[in-house]
Amino acid sequence: MFTMVKPRTFGYFFQSAGSSLVRNSWMTLASIGTVAVALLVLGVFMLLAVNVGAMAAQVEEQVELTAYLADLNNQQRAQLEAELKAIPGVALVTFVSREEAWQRLLEWYGDDRGFLAGWEDDNPLREAFALRADSAFRVGEIAAAVARLRGVEEVIHGREIVEQLLAITRAVRLVGIGLMAGLALASTFIIANTIRITVFARRREISIMRYVGATAWFVRWPFIIEGLVLGLIGAVVASSVLAWGYYFAVRSLAAAIPFWPFVAPWPLLQRLALALLALGALIGVVGSGMSVRRYLDV
């Protein structure tokens, strides 16, 4: 039924909605602001979740384990190496001497190695075997097998970190969705209230429309469009702030936390903006729909 309106009539609808938005400028601003804040919160949490998730994914891809050794003589070490190679799923076993470990550490810190000066004569690092699993899925089971071997003091692998990161991602998502649900509800009601006020302000016009034979949808459309516009503008505001904030945050954080795999702004922000626009539109339409149903007796 509601599609039975001629396309050119939408010109009238938009004009009508526009004049309402301008006339109730304070309510318009309040509605846009609430929608924007709700979507902004959602957006921030989505970006956090995506980036923590990216870190988890990166760690998860690392199939390396490190088995730190107790003090062993050459024979014990050779025996252990053979035992390690015998574990199913282990693809490569490399011995890392204390000196090599030290070199790696120096490389890792690159230009910031200054604080390591003075330690080189008293190398605090342990000997280790670096192991590579043939698949990320077997890392956990390999680690367990390695830990049982005599001469192995400690096994470090990415699995635990991955699990912690995934837990954080889940928590961030949950909190984000929870906050979002509350804020979305609030903004829906704010929009509903704005539309209610508009309906009231235009009751005279609406009654005339009914006498001259306007269809129910003809009367409703301008209000639905008004809600839609409020939701969309709120989403545009939220997306803009997020885009600007994300560029800025990634630029300054990338220097501070060089190892974190920040997700590139593009196309992430584009997708986020589309999601926020869709949600903003939904909030706007549902909000105005509530008032149109309740207060527009057509």
Binding site: V5, R8, T9, Y12, M209, G213, A214, F218
Partner: peptide, 8 residues
């Protein structure tokens, strides 16, 4: 004109 706008 409004009466006619409404009936498109």
């Amino acid at each position: 004109a409004f009466a006619m706008v409404v009936v498109e």
